[in-house]
Design a protein around this nucleic acid. Structure first.
Lengths: 361, 361
DNA sequence: CTGCCTGCTGGAAAGGTTTCCGGGACGAGG
DNA sequence: CCTCGTCCCGGAAACCTTTCCAGCAGGCAG
C-alpha cells in the first residue's frame, strides 16, 4: 500500500535559491522536466498511485522539494470534477449562534480536507438564491444552508435545481427538494418554559419571535399549544418579525406600551433576547419582579444579568458538526464502518429556570 | 459600449424541458453547437467583448437561455488566472468582533464580485500557516488575515512567501512582509479609560489581556504608560493569556483571590470581559461598588449589566469594510477616481464611562 | 478597380492537472 | 524460443474556458 504524499503542506522554503522576481510558481511541467520524467509520472507519485517504483518516487519528490512545487487546486478540481470545497450560506454571520454553527462545521469539514466558501445573505432571500447559484458555478461539492426564508418561491426553485448534496440547518425541507437537515427540537424547550411560567401563575404572555418559518414557527406553536392545553384562560400575544436585536427592542417597547401589559415575555431567539433586555432596561422595568422573562440560548448576558435570565438552551456547535457530517456522509464514498447516516438529525433543547421567572403578581 | 451579460444570475429554469437524469450540466461547447457558432463567439458574447454583432449576440443568448447554461468559474479562473475569491483566515469566528469584521468584509467583497474562502485557526498558529498555503493553492486573489500570532516564525516565513496581496487586520506587519493593514487605535481608548479611573481615585489596577502581540500589547502599553505618567504610586498587575471567555474567567478568579485585591479591573477584549463578568458575578462581587470595571466593545451585555459596564468601544464592521477596500485597491486596476489607497488604516476607539466605574473606596 | 481598413468570426493553443492507453522490459511457464 | 503477464513509464486526450491569430467580407478612399 502506497501513501499519498501531500506536497502542499511542506512549509519549507525551496532548497533552490530562487530569488524573488523571475520564478513564476513552478508547475508540474517544471517538476517533470527537472526530474527527467513524464508529467504523468509526477502526478502518479503525488497522488499515491500504486504503479510507481521506489526510484521514481524518490527522484520526483526530490524535484518537488527543490522547486517548492505545490499543486494547483484549481486545475486539479477542474480535471477531477471535485473541488473539496463546500458552500455555506448563512442569513447572518454576526448572529453568535450561526457563528458557532459555522465554526463547528468548518472544523469538521477541514478535518476531512474540505474548505468553506462562506456567503452572508443578510436575511435577504434574493441573496440566498444568488449565492446558491454562485456556489454551484464555483463547483462546490456540497452546500450547507441556513436560509433566510425556507419557503421563498425563488429559493425553493433554486433548491430544486441544485445538483450537489445539500444540508439545511434548522429549516424544514421544502417539498420536492432533495436534502438532509439538522434541526433543533425547539418545541420541547419552549413547552417546558411555558409550563414553568404557567406553574408560577402567569396567564398573560407575550412572545417575540421571527417570521412564519421553521425556528420561529416551532417555538410559537409550542407556546400556543401549551397554553391551549392548559386551558385556564391563558393568553399570548404574538410579535412576529425578524431575528434581530433591533426587532427585539422594538417589539418589547411595544409590549410595554400596550394597555394590558403581559406578566411574562418570551423572547424566541438570542438576538431578540438581547434586544428585549436592552428595551426592558431602558424602560427601567425590573425583570423578575414587575415582569417575568424567558430568553433563548445561554449567552453570557443571560447568566450575568441581574436577575439571571431563564433560557431555552441547546448545544450549538453540535449542529454545525452534525451538518458537516451529514454532508460528508454523502460526499465521501460510503465507508463500511459508517453506515448510511440518517437523513435528518434533531438535537434537543433544554429549559433552564432562573430568577427572571417570578411568580405572577 | 457593450454590456457584459451574466448568465450566472438567470434564475429562470431552462425553456428546454431537460428531464432529470441525462443532462449533465451543459458546457460552452453545447451552447456553441446549439447556436451553430464557434465557442469563441459564445465566449465573446458572454464576456462583453466588443467584437460581436447584434445578431450573434441574439442567437447565442437564445441558446444560453434554452440550455440554462451557467459558466464554470473553475475553468474560467484557471484560464484567466484570476478566481475572484479571497481567503480570510481568522483566529476565532465565534468571537463576535471577528464575526462582525468578517460580515463587513464579506459584504464589501461580494459587492465587488468576490467570494470569501473562510478558514478558522482556533488560535493555533500552525493552522494559520497551513491555511495560508492552502488558500494559495486554491489560487485566491488575495488574503485577509487575523492571525493567531503575528510573530510566530513559521507564520512570518509563510507570509514572506505569499505572492498575492495581503491585508492584516489589527496586527502589526512583520518585517520583510509586504502587506497592508487595518488596525484600531486601542491605545487612545485605553488611555482615556485609565485616566478616568485615575481621576476617580483608583491606584491599584488589574489588567486582563491577551498575548504579547498587537491588540493586547497596545492596550497594555497604554495602561502602563498612562499610570506611569500619572506617577502617584499607581500600580497595575498584568494577567496575560488568550482572548477567550475562559481565560477571562480564570484570570478574574485569580485576581479576586489575591491578597491585595485591586480596586479596578480592566478587561482588554470582549471575550475577556464576558469571562470576567461571569466570574465576578459567580463570586458575588458587586461591580461598581466593591470594585470598578472597564471592558472592551459595546456588546449588549455591557449595556444591560447592572450597573452598566464602561467600555472602550469602536466601529467593528468598519474594520471589515476597510480591510476589503484595502485589498480591492490592490486587486482592481487603479481607478482614476480612487487614488492609491493608504497602506495602513487606523480606526479610532472611544471610552464610554458608565456606572461600573465608581470612586475608589 | 485596387488596396486598405474595419468589423466580425472560427480555429486552435493555452492554462495545470489527471487518467486512459499503449508499450517496453523483464521474469516465468510451456 | 515463444508467449503471457506484471510492473512501470510516457504520450496524449480531457476538463472548460479565454485569448490570440488569421481570415473573410464589405466599405471606402484613391
Amino acid at each position: 500500500m502506497t501513501l499519498a504524499v501531500d506536497p502542499g503542506n511542506v512549509a519549507s522554503v525551496p532548497d533552490e535559491e530562487e530569488q524573488a522576481g523571475d520564478a513564476a510558481r513552478p508547475g508540474m511541467r517544471e517538476v517533470a522536466d527537472r526530474a527527467g520524467v513524464a508529467m504523468s509520472s509526477v502526478s502518479r507519485v503525488l497522488s499515491g498511485h500504486p504503479d510507481v517504483s521506489p526510484r521514481m518516487r524518490q527522484v520526483v519528490m526530490a524535484a518537488v522539494r527543490e522547486l517548492g512545487y505545490r499543486p494547483d487546486l484549481l486545475a486539479q478540481g477542474l480535471r477531477r470534477g471535485k473541488t473539496f470545497s463546500v458552500g455555506f450560506t448563512v442569513s447572518d454571520i454576526a448572529n453568535p449562534v450561526l457563528a458557532e454553527i459555522v465554526t463547528g462545521a468548518e472544523k469538521r469539514l477541514r478535518e476531512a480536507g474540505y474548505s468553506l466558501l462562506l456567503t452572508n445573505s443578510e436575511g435577504n432571500p434574493a441573496l440566498d438564491v444568488e449565492h446558491i447559484s454562485l456556489l454551484e458555478r464555483r463547483r462546490v461539492d456540497g452546500l450547507i444552508l441556513s436560509l433566510a426564508e425556507e419557503n421563498d418561491p425563488q429559493t425553493v426553485a433554486a433548491l430544486r435545481r441544485v445538483a450537489v448534496p445539500v444540508v439545511l440547518v434548522d429549516r424544514d425541507i421544502p417539498t420536492g427538494v432533495r436534502a438532509r437537515s439538522v434541526a433543533f427540537d425547539h418545541a420541547a424547550g419552549m413547552k417546558a418554559a411555558t409550563e414553568h411560567l404557567l406553574r408560577r401563575g402567569h396567564r398573560e404572555f407575550a412572545l417575540i419571535t421571527g417570521g412564519p418559518e421553521r425556528p420561529a414557527r416551532e417555538r410559537r406553536r409550542a407556546v400556543e399549544e401549551t397554553l391551549a392545553a392548559a386551558g385556564d384562560g391563558a393568553h399570548c400575544t404574538i410579535h412576529e418579525g425578524e431575528f434581530s436585536v433591533d426587532f427585539g427592542r422594538r417589539a418589547t417597547r411595544q409590549i410595554l406600551a400596550s394597555a394590558f401589559r403581559p406578566t411574562a415575555i418570551i423572547a424566541g431567539g438570542n438576538m431578540l433576547m438581547q434586544g428585549a433586555l436592552l428595551a426592558l432596561h431602558a424602560a427601567g422595568v425590573e425583570v423578575g419582579r414587575e415582569i417575568s422573562f424567558v430568553g433563548c440560548d445561554d449567552l453570557a448576558i443571560a447568566e450575568v444579568h441581574q436577575p439571571p435570565i431563564a433560557v431555552v438552551r441547546r448545544d450549538i456547535p453540535a449542529a454545525g458538526i452534525a451538518a458537516a457530517e451529514l454532508l460528508l456522509g454523502e460526499l465521501e464514498p460510503g465507508d463500511a464502518d459508517r453506515p448510511d447516516p440518517p437523513q435528518q438529525v434533531v438535537l434537543p433543547t433544554e429549559f433552564v429556570a432562573r430568577a427572571s421567572c417570578a411568580p405572577a403578581p
